[in-house]
Amino acid sequence: MNGMNSVFKMQLRQKLTWFYLPWAIMGLSFLVNILVSVLVGGDTIYTGGLATIFVFMFVTALTTTIQLFSFAMGFSIRRTDFFSGTFLFILFISIITSALLVLLSYIEVWTGSWGNTVHFFHLLYLSDGSWLAQFVVNLILLVTFSMLGYGIGAFFLRFRGIRTFVMLAAVMIFLSGMSLVATRYEWWGPIIKWFAGHTALGLSLWFIPVVLIIALCSRQCLRKSTV
């Protein structure tokens, strides 16, 4: 318990990049959008500013994994404790972030999109459903993005630079290949239809097994990593 606890606390000490920085940048983007909307004075703007938080989760998970692992190893912490402490922390910070996002989404609806200026936190499709559904969708997405970063970080710690690059390149090539195939056989229509046929909540549930697989692979990588 105590090693895992220490790792959790170590991550907590990084709250600047896990929490304050992404919220500050997103807040800034929010204010700029409102300002622009007021100045232009046209319709209510749709923005993608919300993406900031997800990108930040990805990047922070990646960098803190790499930074904290060798530090934790130097401070007599087991690899498995490092894995579970970080995993728990990702869940924890995602729960808080998700709750805040739901709250802001409700405020946005309540204020009539901040006086008909921007749609920032309450988006079509993504924000459908009850507060609980919104919370779960946010939570799963935040955890997925963080785990992607965590997974790449763990892979890097295990296999180092060149092989990580090759792995990422291979994934990219595979995905581009698949999208080419989809275009060639005209699968996009049915794919989009399938997406539209499901709620954001129903879709997000598909990410749970993805997260679990990444978690398992990260754990295996970390157990074989050296400083």
Binding site: G3, S6, Q14, G74, S76
Partner: peptide
């Protein structure tokens, strides 16, 4: 491993850690 304290020259510390943070971490580990 909790019985071993290994101080090495090239020990890496997280960017956001202060001296105090390191001491707090050490107190929770050893």
């Amino acid at each position: 491993i909790q019985q071993i304290c290994f101080i090495k020259e090239g020990q890496k510390y997280p960017d956001l850690f202060t001296v105090k943070d390191v001491m707090v971490t050490a107190s929770s580990v050893y």
